[in-house]
């Protein structure tokens, strides 16, 4: 009896999990499907799910019209560059806060997080002017720096949480073993925090990849990443849903594939510390 109950319990949870997963995934699936429809099929009422004439014409049009590879490269440089730069700053910062906390460490952490609570548009003009006077409008350099700053609180917070889980004894052992602070971080702390750092990196790359405020506002032609590529297919006057879907699919495909292959790391990293 009890065994039967656990089996049916398990079944219910599995079904619920699948329903939830499917619900979350549905918009992405719909976008991908729409990208293979004609514009007329894309808006047909009632909508068609699979039963349509599959076509690649939207992808061809998008290829012809846009320089996908340039946008793609810009996205890669901005998301990966900002993440690496962020880690360079965040690892020592999180180390200090996790292992040598001061009286105000908690306040500093909260303050950093509070900067994320302000709507970005509130600092739009000052930052725009700063970037402009530095002569960095429409440059990848500016976006790498800005995206790094935007996500730095999150990187530091995540790393801080991971570092807190590392026993202080081991770091003291390294110190006793003659490791300088630099070597302690390089040889002991960082390798031990690899799962945490990896998932922080992945999450941050995804966040930077999808960021669509600064990347749109601080770029024009040269440094515009894939967010701008998508935005160029959105139109209030004219139905280009299929082409927009094709552009969106092309923009999210790389990050989706990356997420798929690293999901083990991601899940492990995101639930790190949640289950003790």
């Amino acid at each position: 009896m009890a065994r039967q109950q656990t089996i049916s319990n398990k079944l219910v949870w599995t079904v619920l999990a699948w329903i939830l997963g499917a619900t979350i995934f549905f918009p992405i699936l719909w976008t991908v499907l729409t990208s293979f429809k004609t514009e007329a099929q894309a808006i047909s009422i009632p909508p068609v799910m699979f039963d349509f004439d599959w076509t690649f014409e939207n992808y061809e049009t998008v290829q012809e019209r846009s320089n996908y590879s340039r946008h793609f490269w810009n996205s890669v440089v901005i998301s990966v560059g900002s993440t690496l730069l962020g880690l360079l700053i965040a690892v020592p910062a999180a180390w200090a806060m996790a292992f040598v906390p001061g009286k105000r460490t908690k306040d500093v952490l909260m303050w950093m997080l509070s900067t994320k609570m302000m709507p970005a548009v509130g600092v739009m003009i000052p930052i725009y002017l700063m970037v402009q006077s530095a002569g960095l409008l429409d440059s990848k350099t500016a976006l790498v720096i800005i995206m790094m700053l935007v996500n730095l609180p999150i990187i530091i917070w995540m790393l801080y949480t991971y570092f807190k889980e590392i026993p202080g004894d081991i770091l003291e052992a390294a110190r006793m073993d003659g490791a300088s602070l630099k070597n302690e971080i390089i040889y002991v702390l960082t390798p031990m925090a690899v799962p945490g750092i990896a998932s922080t990196m992945l999450l941050n790359v995804i966040l930077a990849w999808n960021e669509a405020f600064w990347t749109l506002n601080l770029t024009a032609a040269k440094a515009a990443p894939l967010t701008a590529f998508i935005a160029s297919y959105s139109s209030p006057e004219g139905l280009f849903y299929a082409k927009l879907s094709a552009a969106s699919t092309m923009a999210i495909a790389p990050i989706l594939i990356m997420g798929w292959f690293s999901q083990k790391q991601l899940v492990r990293g995101l639930t790190f510390g949640a289950v003790k």
């Binding site: 026993p167 004894d169 081991i170 003291e172 110190r175 006793m176």
Partner: peptide, 20 residues
Amino acid sequence: AAPSERGLAMVFQSYALYPH
């Protein structure tokens, strides 16, 4: 002096081995 400069070695209660 820093711990590393004192020429001492320490064995911890938790062993504090490097797990990686």
